[in-house]
Design a protein around this nucleic acid. Sequence first.
DNA 1: CTGAATAATGACTTCGAATGCAAAATAAAA
DNA 2: TTTTATTTTGCATTCGAAGTCATTATTCAG
Lengths: 339, 339
Amino acid sequence: MNKNKRVTSYDVAEAAGVSQSAVSRVFLKGRSVSKKTREKVLATAKELGYKPNAIARMLITKRSGMVAVILSSRANLNYPEVLSLLNKRLSAKNERVLLFNLDDADGLDDILEQIWTFQVDGVIALAAHFDNDSINQFKDHNIPVVLYNRRASGHSASSVCCNHEQGLTELVSLLDDNNHKSYLIVGGPEQSDVAQERLDCSINALAQKGHHKVPVRYGDYSYESGRLAFAEWMQKNKAPTAVICGNDTMAIGVIDEARENFGLNVPEDLSVVGFDGVSAVAWHSYRLTTVKQPLEQMTKAAVDILLEQIESPDNPAQLRVWSGTLIPGNTVAPAKDES
Amino acid sequence: MNKNKRVTSYDVAEAAGVSQSAVSRVFLKGRSVSKKTREKVLATAKELGYKPNAIARMLITKRSGMVAVILSSRANLNYPEVLSLLNKRLSAKNERVLLFNLDDADGLDDILEQIWTFQVDGVIALAAHFDNDSINQFKDHNIPVVLYNRRASGHSASSVCCNHEQGLTELVSLLDDNNHKSYLIVGGPEQSDVAQERLDCSINALAQKGHHKVPVRYGDYSYESGRLAFAEWMQKNKAPTAVICGNDTMAIGVIDEARENFGLNVPEDLSVVGFDGVSAVAWHSYRLTTVKQPLEQMTKAAVDILLEQIESPDNPAQLRVWSGTLIPGNTVAPAKDES
DNA sequence: CTGAATAATGACTTCGAATGCAAAATAAAA
DNA sequence: TTTTATTTTGCATTCGAAGTCATTATTCAG
């Protein structure tokens, strides 16, 4: 209709012959408005093409209707799905996603700066590293945070996690049941908390089965780094019979490297397991045995907790942990008896 | 510092013994402030923990500093990277990303509603379907739009595209050079514009080489749908020697299905090509021959064009098309002479 | 039909920063 | 030193919707 100026509630009020307050009330639920004015306002609003200005509303209500989602760039093929699920659930609760990409610790300050100025209602941080100091800043600013797959030390922030211990224990048990004795671990990036936790859990689970001093190589979660880690190990060492990888993508890299450059058959000569349950694990050439994170539940919980904390900021931080599901693929077989 | 109330520019002004205007000017570039007041204000601002309220600023400046990015949920493994690149480039230009997930045409109205009320500065739409009507709505609301990999009919909106025609012509030429005569096309979802365009380009390119009436099956871009499409074709027909797929993921599905359930070797018995250049095409088990989209350039152009249109809304819409790069994998070989 | 209880309405203020404009302070020129 | 040009500064207003509160219209019981 009108090209240049935006239509405001005053315009509608005037055109409908009511007060601006009346217009405002019509667009808010649970406000006392007579049927007659409601219809009149709605009609003229439609006619003029009026849409409430969210910015002005934010200013007065002190609710931005936006949640900051901080995405670490550490490539995890699950994140697109996680992001999409979070977005869906948040918009169902009438919150929008303001997206931030965290590259390195350096960029964090910038992001935090943005978050304060944008008055977001809350924050969901995906696999990003937050030290206690940052978390305290959120407290100071009264902005609730939910960490996704990352525990806050001292329960200072809520978090939703996949139970890496349980998942890796299951994977290790499976390998142990298959009589594996010679292991290699390909861990994720050393700076990543999740990677570190998975590593620790792997080592502990192996130790409980009597496998000590298991060698570790590190990758950066990428396919290439998986290949490289395995290749490097093989240069100077004997082939293991089982490889435990910090994520699926590296596991797939290990499989390809083993097959292509070392003539090993998976799973006959080498068993490989991953972690995450990304969609590619189902691809026929791999059929990776892995543990799938319950993304549906985890994202739902993350959003629920966050909204609860937004409504009642004094509620204590909570931690919810979900078990992963073992996906029995085709990359684990009994260890060859080398005797 | 202070727990409950937010610090405003008035608080800082009072504490620093200056006017609110002065505080405001200190936090704006290119405003005339004396060195003395600047330092005084900056010091007390820091002391009180003052951060300008972006919401209030938006209201008065009529610039939200936010760009809506609409992501179609049609799974394309490229999108995480595209999203990340867009985010980086936008934040470099001091714009934040407000993320929307478009599931089906139905959800579009909701999203548009949000976009109007949130007063975003501009919109980047990834592979989402926009009819002319929607695009006109953006015009009415004076919000510039850049379509990513989707052309607007009648140049009514700017767009940044990968040149599907060129890419598919190269792929088809490659197959034709390898003497293929019997083709199958596995297209993307019929509702998708990009999928449709790729399909048309494939058919045209094939026709130019003298291959007419090439059969088409449809998938939804997923791995499973690729397998299914190929399997369905094979149930009632003779095996083709070459398959042209609407994206990489389906191509990988076709490869697996051909190998696993029909005993076909790729590329000896069957050549397969994809489109997109997702990272998985490099995985050893596939080494898919495909065309990679120049994401770096495309995202940069998208952001540049959008910002230009935000600054000068009357500039005409522009279209920028980028050639894809042929990635010669290992899934194309000379057709077997069936004589 | 009257009075009490309830619902609907509008005038006015608020949120917090940005800006036009005029006044004040400073610097530069004469 | 005086005058003129320039830079700083603060006042008052603006952005657009929401909330407070007092007032008016409506409903309902007696």
